[in-house]
Simulated scan of single mutants.
Amino acid sequence: MTQLSNGARIGILAAAVVVLAGVAAGYTALAADRAEPAPAATKDGLPLTLTPGPRLLTITDRHLATVSAADPGGPRTVSTVQCLRVYAAAGTGVCLRPQTAWSYEVVVLDADLRPHQTVAVPGLPNRARVSPSGRLVAWTVFVGGDSYTSSGFSTRTGILDTRTGTTVNSLEEFSVIHEGRPYRNVDVNFWGVTFAADDNRFYATMSTAGRRYLIRGDLAARTVETLRANVECPSLSPDGTRVAFKQAVDADPQRGWRLSVLDLATMTVTETAERTSVDDQAAWLDATTLGYTLRQDDGRPDVWSVPADGSGTPRLLIPGAESPAPLAA
């Protein structure tokens, strides 16, 4: 890996500070207007629900919204609930949102968007997932102040069992097996959890020593093991056989990411037809289609879709939206 000069590191740090400052300012505005109701998106004012059905959940102008899976670009049902990241499965939702102007929380929502459980988190919301059964929720936040990071910030990834209340505050508490051997390093970071159907196994990204790896975790054993390098923000397919992920071009995130799919049995990678750099944790909208967020030059998000098998072309799915999640049973 190319070593950065001190000047380059300072430049990266300065850029990161500017980005985080801008994000924080936006989040402060969101915290200030959380109680403001969203404008009606349908003439009949139907309530938004997370009950399984042929709909997609998204965030529209910071509010939770649903659209028909058959007509995602059509009318939207918009709630008054505001989130920065969202995901849902089996009638359970996870919402990452401001707690105060400079603090954040994970909120578990029931099918009618009522808060069920809340966990305070130590940084800026980044990723969110719910297990297929709705029992487990996971989140990733950016945090600052870790002295071992050259950029000045790192991640924290946690998991909550909504049935027992058991909380993993950070995956850094787990034992790591790397290349077949126990591994420890102060620079280990995790992000982007995705759950298997058994409510025990999960996949995520681990970074250490300048490289990123796909890891498979065992929640009960509190262990993770590395499987493959250059895999970020995995998303497990509905049948549990494939992982959609963002693959750094030439293993260098500075060159952008290619949305790809990994076959877990053969470890072969298929690149999708999306050529734009995708800095997102894609969602499986169904067994063959991926949904993900791309931002326009002015920062406005749009949800796009592309076939998972490398065929076809990308399609604009939901203009002015982000954080897609399928609600189908």
Rank of each mutant, 00 (worst) to 15 (best):
A88D: 03
S175F: 01
E225M: 06
A88R: 06
N6K: 09
S305C: 11
E322P: 02
F190T: 03
V137K: 08
S207C: 12
A31N: 11
L136S: 06
H63M: 03
D280Y: 00
G256F: 01
A88I: 01
S207H: 11
V67Q: 10
T270C: 06
A209V: 12
N185T: 13
T208Y: 14
L109V: 03
E274Q: 15
T2Y: 15
R97W: 00
M267K: 14
L227D: 06
S207P: 11
G134K: 02
P307K: 04
G93T: 04
Q82E: 04
Q281T: 06
Q82P: 00
L171Y: 05
S323G: 00
E271G: 13
S79P: 13
Q117I: 00
G165W: 04
R127M: 10
G45N: 14
Q82G: 04
D33A: 10
P72T: 04
C233S: 14
V67N: 09
R34Q: 15
G256M: 05
L48H: 09
T49P: 10
Y183Q: 11
T51C: 03
A209K: 13
T270Q: 13
L113G: 00
P314S: 06
G312K: 08
A273D: 10
D263E: 13
D187F: 11
P234E: 00
T92I: 08
S235T: 09
F153G: 15
P122Q: 00
A282E: 00
A65V: 05
T118F: 02
T293H: 02
A282L: 03
G180N: 02
L316Y: 07
P54H: 07
K246T: 09
P238Q: 03
L264T: 12
T155K: 06
T80V: 02
R300C: 07
T289I: 01
V261I: 12
G256Y: 03
L259F: 09
G320H: 11
T194F: 01
S237T: 05
V186W: 14
W304K: 01
A70L: 02
R184E: 15
R255Q: 14
L317K: 05
D309W: 03
T51Q: 13
P54I: 09
P301C: 06
L259Y: 12
T157V: 08
G93V: 06
P319Y: 02
A196G: 09
N126V: 07
M267Y: 15
D263H: 11
H178E: 10
A128W: 07
